[in-house]
Write a protein that binds this DNA or RNA. Structure first.
Length: 798
RNA sequence: GCCGGGGUGGCGGAAUAGGUAGACGCUACGGACUUAAAAUCCGUUGGGCGUUUCGCCCGUGCGGGUUCGAUUCCCGCCUCCGGCACCA
């Protein structure tokens, strides 16, 4: 008997797919499309490990499943190849990032081929290819022209190790998301993208998406919409006024002091001479604190300015303080403090002995323990006494509005996107600075602004990119006046290229547009997007923003790029994420060599629920390998001695079709594998042709090479993927006999096998023969019986 | 602190519109085959107990509750992981 030889089989079918261009797809309006996308990788030098495989296998199973169901499946792959590691290598060992990137791409591509996925490599994209980043720059110019890209000097997060500015999204607990170095605040002239203009649409769009709840929540809280009111407080004895944002206008009568952020421009203006020295010192100190330090100590600090504000509803004079617990970049950088109903204000008031006036009582009217931060009924609030918090929010806001002292307002936690990086290996921002004309966008026909070669890649650390030193690149002519001008030397963040790459796959070679609109119309949006949870608010939020913008300018006809999102779990080893430094990386290459790609593919699925982190077990793949051999041997034996189909095997066959489809649809891929294993354990030593063919088709998404080979062995023309996904005959799923559990007082005492629709009496009489049941019932009276046909018979005895 | 998701055998994990807990696989043990080993195949494998082809008790993080019946629902804890973190 010929035995299973994974090497021969897998290389044979790899070659076959290549020759027949089996994975090359084209637009076909006659067929429904399915766009199944992997988050394209950054090609690092370390290569792929079994954790990377997981998501790629998952998306390939879906792609192949959809293909068998008759869809025209787009399943592309490419490279997110701009980024710091290549640049840091260049600094260290002097190899041009272009070269190291190309090397890494070659390694990755070879490893990805091992998976045997149905990638259409003719559509490969690479973000560092000038023909690609031409369009990344083009999108930037469109944003610039519509005022969504602007330059601003402001304090931004700066990573001293990466020596570049960072977006808020790239700062994790005060540290650089990439390297973990605590970030500093630096005042730099930065390019910004006005993502805040899309805040509400980004929020509303989430409702339409079939995404994991967790990611939706993360984006919601990142956008951080809060509704409230802006309230203006006059400053006693001055013409200036302070505007604050509050979500609790209902507590306005309880505002007993105000606080300005230390950086607030009014601080210096309103501070009285006798407080000036102390205030100056405090402000200086607060501004030199790093954000990490500022977060580390929750101990309230602050200083009185000597000035007073006037509470617009009751005319009370309240002191104005400066404190770093108020953030300059949220709301107006100033607050009204209501210590009775806000924990932070309460703490501050206690420390500095400021008055605390409760204005909200429990719904039953009792004055609660302070601080009382939830809603209730208004007290000490003049005409609003007795009113419910929620109503009072509106009523007080309306009164302020009538008097011109305030208005309803919405604030967001999300800030505009810091978009410039002071690094080399990124897309140059296509802007020219002319001493006469100012900022001038590079004319579209001059795109791409190609990245020049440099001698020294090291960042300057002064907030300037290494490109600054390439004088013959920097010095250029102004597109408007033709006079001498300089190129913008900042580059774009890595996210720029990944915001729209999935559009390019639809039409990767187009040099007239980022993609032809009929192709975008056919292939997009992405039906299933598979990748790690780490991009929950970065890439996925930025992409959504880009697509909404491209929708607004008529490039695409949809507003959300990724209809369905699936986040695969990590593969851990010894309880930890795989990494070179921990030395716990499991290399797929050796496993493919030993067990074959099909075994590894199936083990990647079998390891656990795909959305959950799973521990890698070296022995686990053995079981899968044995399973594959059992399938192989079953086919080989059956070919020698093919039985005729019988009812029992027909029923099992239909049951398998139904189970596999249902479990693939619900992403229970680990249980799809066990369904196959159970099936193989159940069927005899041989099977009829129809059952075998069905088994092979169902198995094809998981183990494509094996399926092709078996399909051919069974006498069919390749490819198995031209076959149709088998249909289920619902009649065949009907079961006649079932095992019913017999319980006494809810405790299972035995089982009886009866007809599915057996009347209660039949089950009862069968149950009465079970020793364990007799024991439990003897000497007691049956007071009640509960019979759930096909499930349980429960005898309640006393 | 706030928000979200988990805790099931020696291990990875099945099973939740409430209905036989531990499917499937790994490990381990026993057996068959073999000169022997590997591979393969067949058994056993949650814990405890007994009168051991059978029966009893306990068992899904802990403590309560609802129910004929709870891994599943409710209340209160413990604990682990992830996100946010002075956002007014």
């Amino acid at each position: 008997m010929s035995s299973y030889n994974h090497k021969a089989i897998e290389s044979k079918w790899r070659a076959y797919w290549e020759e027949t261009q089996a994975h090359t797809v084209a637009m076909d309006p006659a067929k429904p499309k399915f766009y199944c996308l992997d988050m394209f990788p950054y090609p690092s030098g370390a290569g792929l490990h079994v954790g990377h495989w997981r998501g790629y296998v998952l998306s390939d199973v879906w792609s192949r499943y959809k293909k068998l169901q008759g869809y025209n499946v787009l399943h592309p792959m490419g490279w997110d190849a701009f980024g710091l590691p290549a640049e840091n290598d260049a600094i260290k060992i002097g190899i041009h990032p272009k070269i190291s990137t190309a090397d890494n791409v070659a390694t990755f591509k070879r490893q990805l081929h091992e998976i045997g996925a149905m990638y259409d490599w003719a559509r490969e994209v690479n973000t560092t290819d000038p023909d690609y980043y031409k369009w990344t720059q083009w999108i930037f110019l469109q944003m610039y022209k519509r005022g969504l890209a602007y330059r601003n000097e402001m304090p931004i997060n700066f990573c001293p190790s990466c020596q570049t500015g960072l977006a808020n999204e790239e700062v994790v607990q005060g540290a650089c998301e990439r390297c973990g170095t605590p970030v500093e605040k630096r005042n730099l002239m930065q390019w910004m993208l006005k993502i805040t203009e899309y805040a509400d649409r980004l929020l509303d769009g989430l409702k339409t998406l079939d995404w994991p709840e967790k990611v939706i929540k993360m984006q919601e809280s990142w956008i951080g919409r809060s509704e409230g009111a802006e309230v203006s407080f006059a400053i006693d004895g001055k013409d200036d006024q302070i505007t604050v944002f509050t979500t609790r206008p209902d507590t306005l009568f309880g505002a007993t002091y105000m606080v300005l952020a230390p950086e607030h421009e009014l601080v210096a203006k309103i501070t009285t001479s006798e407080h000036a020295a102390r205030v100056e010192q405090y402000v200086k100190q607060a501004m030199t604190k790093s954000s990490v330090e500022r977060m580390a100590s929750k101990e309230k600090t602050g200083v009185f300015t000597g000035a007073y504000g006037i509470n617009p509803v009751n005319g009370k004079r309240i002191p104005i303080w400066a404190s770093d617990y108020v953030l300059i970049d949220y709301g107006s950088g100033a607050i009204m403090a209501v210590p009775a109903h806000d924990e932070r204000d309460y703490e501050f008031a206690m420390k500095f002995d400021l008055p605390i006036v409760p204005v909200i009582a429990e719904t039953d009217g009792t004055v609660p323990e302070l601080p009382f931060v939830i809603s209730g009924i208004l007290i000490n609030s003049g005409p609003f006494n007795g009113m419910d918090s929620e109503k009072a929010k509106q009523a007080i806001t309306e009164q302020l509005e009538r008097n011109g002292l305030g208005k309803a307002s919405v604030q967001y936690k999300m800030r505009d996107w810091v978009f410039s990086r002071q690094r080399y290996w990124g897309e140059p921002i296509p802007i020219i600075h002319c001493p006469k004309c100012g900022e001038v966008p590079v004319p579209e026909e001059q795109l791409p602004v190609a990245l020049p070669d440099v001698e020294n890649y090291a960042p300057t650390g002064t907030g300037e990119s290494p490109l600054t030193a390439i004088t013959d690149w920097v010095n250029t002519a102004c597109p408007e006046c033709n006079g001498p001008a300089k190129r913008e030397t900042n580059t774009m963040p890595q996210w720029a290229g990944s915001c729209w790459y999935f559009l390019r796959y639809a039409d990767p070679d187009n040099d007239k547009a980022l993609a032809a609109s009929e192709k975008l119309k056919y292939w997009l949006p992405v039906d299933l997007y598979v990748g790690g949870i780490e991009h929950a608010v970065l890439h996925l939020l930025y992409s959504r923003f880009y697509i909404k913008f491209l929708y607004d300018i008529g490039v695409v006809d949809f507003e959300e790029p990724f209809t369905r999102l699936f986040n695969q779990g990590m593969v851990t080893k010894d309880g930890a994420k795989m990494s070179k430094s921990k030395g716990n990386v499991v290399n797929p290459d050796e496993l493919v060599e030993h067990y074959g790609a099909d075994s590894l593919r199936i083990y990647e699925l079998f390891i656990g629920p795909p959305e959950v982190d799973s521990e890698w077990m070296d022995n686990g793949i053995e079981g899968v390998y044995r399973f594959i051999q059992r399938v192989w041997n079953l086919v080989v034996r059956s070919l020698k001695d093919m039985p005729e189909p019988v009812l029992a095997s027909e029923k099992m066959r239909h049951r398998l079709i139904a189970t596999v489809a249902e479990r693939i649809e619900s992403f229970k891929l680990n249980t799809v594998v066990s369904a196959f294993m159970e099936y193989i354990n159940q069927v005899g030593s041989t099977l009829d042709r129809k059952s075998l063919e069905t088994l092979v088709i169902l198995l094809a998404p998981l183990a494509p090479h094996l399926a092709e080979e078996l399909w051919q062995m069974l006498g069919n023309e390749p490819s198995v993927f031209d076959a149709k996904w088998p249909e289920v005959d619902p009649e065949m799923l009907v079961v006649e006999k079932v095992v019913v559990a017999v319980q006494v007082n809810g405790k299972t005492r035995g089982t009886v096998e009866v007809a599915v629709d057996a009347p209660e009496q039949d089950v009862m009489s069968a149950a009465a023969k079970i020793t364990s049941v007799i024991n439990a019932v003897s000497g007691k009276a049956i007071v009640k019986t509960i019979y759930v046909p096909g499930k349980i018979l429960n005898l309640v005895v006393r």
